[in-house]
Design a protein around this nucleic acid. Structure first.
Lengths: 211, 211
DNA sequence: GGGCGAATGGGGGACTTTCCCTGATGTGGT
DNA sequence: ACCACATCAGGGAAAGTCCCCCATTCGCCC
């Protein structure tokens, strides 16, 4: 059987050298690229079986590469390989068309297997990351965070300050209110969001990048 | 002349393989580590000439490694080698005792030269990064924050968590202490820094980018 | 050996903060 | 008139913060 043909896309020459050293004997590395434009060109020219694709690249990200050549090389499978295990990165890259996503903490043998499975049509994910993708597909689309819509403008304003660690007294001073009014708003926010204290609120706001 | 003895500290086996493949002929790689504790142990055991040190590690960061063994191996030089080019990371790592800081975008020959120069006592920086360090020293070096030197290691540890908003109870759980001990440390920190409550402490720590 | 700093904790107290409850008033929109 | 919203009050339970006091242990240095 002929060796699988690979393209490596990563802006770190050192990392590409590592992959070559670990995998060069088992796969045919037909091309390398260090940025988005180069990657698109090389992939089109070589139509490899699998592309190892770093998520963060000079001149764009993995999605830019996927958009630029996915439709031109239908037989090529893309395996994202990144230092980032951020849910946003994972979900965005998979939405863009990657067939798998593993972190660079992976070992040589594991990567070898991941590439083989990707070429076979499997979806390969580092254990912790599979959950993010499933979550995103399961819950993500419909709701649009109805919860925050139930807060009044004033409540949102108070909520933001509370989430930053202000005390009720400080919020009252900042917004020129009485402490009691702040208490009322905070209670309403906690009740509406079904949270039980300010720390959870800070977490909630941080998750939604509201601070 | 005998080859320089290296230790590689990086949580990505793949990256270490890349460095080995690129440098293994020119340097004597006497040890490798993938996390903070392992790194400290290996460095103490091998007392290499140069340590290639990733900034972001499981169980801590490069500073933890530097704190853990800098005084034990006075002849060893540390060269930070990271994907991050964030000013905070650079400055923090250099403050911690690293003698240089280059990004992983570096090429094999450049890394070879950087290691040689580090061993010779030079300070090696990627071009864009040198500026950050110089800025940091220009903008307030004279004082060297005598205040924080007056804190004991344990006090600093407690202080960091308090500054992040942890309650005494949570700090106690995290560090496996009694609440009373946490209170004692916090009181000492507030007294030494002449602050009056945890919010001022959070502000103080944030100003100094200790969180 | 004696002193000293560091780390660990216990008791207790004063005070603030948080969160919830039950109210009230006024305003603007439909 | 009704309702959502914003404003404020009194009261109280619970938690957390910060300050005293104190003791023990350990290791280090003179």
């Amino acid at each position: 059987m002929t060796r699988l043909r690979l393209v490596l896309v990563d802006d770190h020459a050192m990392f590409r050298a590592g992959v070559r050293a670990e995998l060069g004997d088992d796969f045919d590395i037909v091309g390398e690229a260090a940025n988005v434009d180069e990657a698109i060109r090389v992939i089109r020219e070589t139509t490899p079986d699998v592309v190892l694709l770093d998520v963060h690249l000079p001149g764009g990200d993995a999605r830019a590469v996927l958009e630029g050549c996915l439709s031109d090389v239908p037989a090529t499978r893309f395996l994202a390989l990144s230092v980032s295990d951020a849910p946003d990165d994972v979900v965005a890259t998979v939405r863009g068309g990657a067939r798998g996503y593993v972190t660079k903490a992976i070992s040589g043998p594991e990567l070898r297997e991941a590439i083989q499975r990707t070429a076979d049509g499997d979806a390969v994910f580092s254990p912790r990351l599979a959950g993010f993708v499933l979550d995103a597909f399961a819950g993500g689309a419909a709701e649009h965070d109805e919860e925050i819509d139930r807060l009044t403008p004033r409540e949102r304003e108070v909520m933001r300050l509370i989430a930053r660690g202000y005390t009720y007294r400080e919020v009252a001073t900042e917004l020129v209110l009485s402490i009691k009014t702040v208490e009322t708003h905070v209670s309403a926010v906690l009740r509406k969001l079904q949270l039980s204290n300010r720390r959870e609120l800070a977490q909630w706001a941080s998750d939604r990048k509201l601070i």
